[in-house]
Design a protein around this nucleic acid. Structure first.
Length: 580
DNA sequence: ATAGGGTTAG
């Protein structure tokens, strides 16, 4: 056996970097460092193996005179998955300019991965062109990577076009399209892809279910989610931890904590996601005590909490007014679990103190946070000042928002409400002027409701729905029924002051999106069933009062998920106890 | 030698 054969054989069985370095020394003493097969193998091992070393691979690679595709692929692949994927693209460029070796389908798969991770949008397009020129645009894997890379770079439309034009799509391609849409926040599109998929007989698996369930969670599509749950049971995917976790989250965020618990209870394997989904679920429903109970069980089960665990806990504590507990968990993060509180945790703490009326403490909290220049913290404080009608600290919060250049019309409206509560007409006038000078720019409000497996979206005074005449007719009826029980359309504090709230922006006599959604729900769903609404903003005071009366007048449970928490309306009262 | 897919928070 020749020396080079012996070394190649040694390399075959090599499984550690240490051992590899020994072999490498052997290569050098035998003068074989320019042996192409050997150096290529060495590079491959160092770049790809978990026990390898990318910098060592680089060193070896640069000693190869005319690296062949194989060696290029190894180095491009290694960097594509590394913390510095840009390097991968640079090597790809070098490969092109070297003119010695040509990229193959594997090269493209690797470099596309790098483009996806590095956000190299132009490179992504360029690589696409090269793929076509090289005649690889019919390869399923390459195209799937292209789709992912385009979505990762924000070209959602181009990605879908590539996907639609693929000559062949397998289950992974479909799953990629779904999960990419879902991760990019295109939830309706993700669910629509599933409809297309059903006609193609590719089946589905755990990956499909996870992507779809995540989208259901985000848009509150409970019926679709329940259907997926049934499919998961029928096809044997419920034992998959990812699927179980996604189901728990879906049920919890759709307002069905009991169903979330059922899934949780039936799981044989639970990981940190499983526990977090329960804790966060209880937290956003305002059940701090429930979140705490799951946290204790989690520790007993020997699962390490992470920063999200504490977000759920703190959120629950703040909504339930568990100040002491919240403080305790906040400290516990760093002292017992070596987790550094992030900006979100500070946000929860500001909310915890602020909501409880401890505004000075909330202010101190911002002072000790690592990012006092985060507008979110000041805005949270401002919100608390509105609840507790505190002009002094409200003005401090506003001053900071202005200094940060982050103040917006919504903030002025909040402060105006605080002034209005204090009957400070000068203050109101000042805010009115500021709003006028800035122009009102706020997020338009939406509400979604699911009826059957269709999701219907409404905006303020929406007339785009095909059944809008019927919906408006129903809404007028609902309003008069509610009025019989005592509902008085409430002009908000602010409109009295000649201003309008964020939610009331469009017109003062407006039908807010959730009123339309509720009327639609009452008209389209069977008597006695509960109605679930998801909206992107907070509920306004008038709609909150309206919904309470409606829940009584029509004997319906109405569950509204707003931007921050859940409201369960039943028999004329709301689970938030009018405190939100 | 070698490729592509998943959940919480934001």
């Amino acid at each position: 056996m020749s020396k080079s054969d012996t070394i190649l054989k040694l390399l075959q069985g090599c499984n550690s970097l240490q051992r590899l370095q020994k072999i490498h020394a052997h290569v050098i003493t035998n003068g074989l460092q320019h042996h192409p097969a050997i150096s290529t193998k060495l590079v491959h091992f160092c770049a790809v193996s978990v026990s390898g070393s990318l910098s060592y691979a680089q060193l070896l690679f640069h000693h190869i005179d005319n690296p062949q595709t194989q060696a290029w692929n190894s180095i491009i692949r290694g960097f594509a998955n590394s913390p510095s994927p840009l390097q991968s693209i640079l090597y790809y460029n070098d490969m092109f300019s070297s003119l010695v070796s040509r990229p193959d389908i594997f090269t493209f798969s690797f470099v596309l991965k790098a483009c996806e991770r590095v956000k190299a949008e132009n490179k992504c397009r360029e690589v696409h062109g090269t793929i076509i020129r090289c005649g690889y645009e019919r390869d399923v894997v390459v195209c799937t990577n292209l789709v992912r890379s385009y979505v990762g770079n924000g070209f959602i439309g181009v990605a879908k076009k590539v996907f639609d034009d693929m000559s062949e799509r397998d289950l992974v391609s479909w799953n990629s399209m779904i999960s990419c849409y879902s991760q990019a926040g295109f939830h309706y599109e993700a669910l629509k892809v599933y409809d297309e998929m059903k006609n193609e007989n590719v089946g589905l698996d755990g990956f499909t279910l996870v992507g779809l369930l995540s989208s259901c969670t985000h848009v509150g599509a409970l019926n679709v989610g329940v259907n997926l749950h049934r499919i998961a049971c029928e096809e044997g995917f419920v034992k998959n931890v990812y699927v179980g976790n996604a189901l728990i989250d879906m049920y919890a965020k759709c307002g069905c904590l009991d169903d979330a618990f059922c899934v949780f209870d039936s799981m044989q394997k639970r990981d940190v996601f499983t526990w977090n989904s329960m804790i966060v679920g209880y937290g956003v429903h305002g059940h701090g005590d429930g979140a705490i109970s799951f946290f204790r069980q989690m520790l007993m089960a020997g699962v390490q909490p992470n920063s999200i665990t504490f977000l759920g806990l703190l959120c629950g504590c703040s909504h339930q007014g568990l100040v002491e507990e919240g403080v305790e968990y906040f400290h516990m993060m760093s002292t017992k679990f070596n987790l550094k509180p992030g900006i979100k945790h500070y946000g929860c703490m500001v909310d915890l103190f602020g909501r409880a009326g401890k505004l000075e403490k909330a202010l101190d909290m911002i002072g000790t946070s690592p990012s006092q220049d985060d507008p979110v913290l000041w805005r949270t404080l401002l919100g608390s000042c509105k609840i507790h009608k505190n002009v002094k600290i409200g003005e401090i919060a506003m001053r900071n928002l202005v200094q940060l250049g982050a103040s917006n019309a919504g903030d002025y409206i909040l402060l105006a409400a605080i002034y209005a509560g204090a009957k400070d007409t000068d203050g109101i006038a000042k805010m009115r002027k500021l709003i006028k000078s800035q122009g009102i720019k706020t997020t338009p409000g939406w509400s979604w409701i699911e009826v059957g497996d269709q999701i219907h979206k409404f905006v303020v005074d929406d007339k785009s729905h095909p059944d809008f005449v019927e919906i408006y007719h129903k809404l007028r009826e609902v309003i008069s029924q509610a009025a019989l029980l005592g509902y008085v359309p409430e002009e908000s504090l602010i409109s009295v002051a000649g201003l309008i709230t964020e939610e009331c922006l469009e017109t003062s006599t407006s039908y807010h999106s959730e009123k339309l959604a509720i009327a639609f729900g009452l008209a389209k769903t069977p008597k006695g069933t509960s109605i679930r609404i998801v909206k992107n903003l907070r509920v306004c005071k008038d709609c909150h009062s309206f919904t309470k009366y409606v829940s009584k007048a029509f004997n319906r449970e109405i569950i509204v998920r707003d931007r921050v928490r859940f409201h369960h309306f039943k028999g004329g009262v709301c689970s938030c106890k009018d405190y939100w």
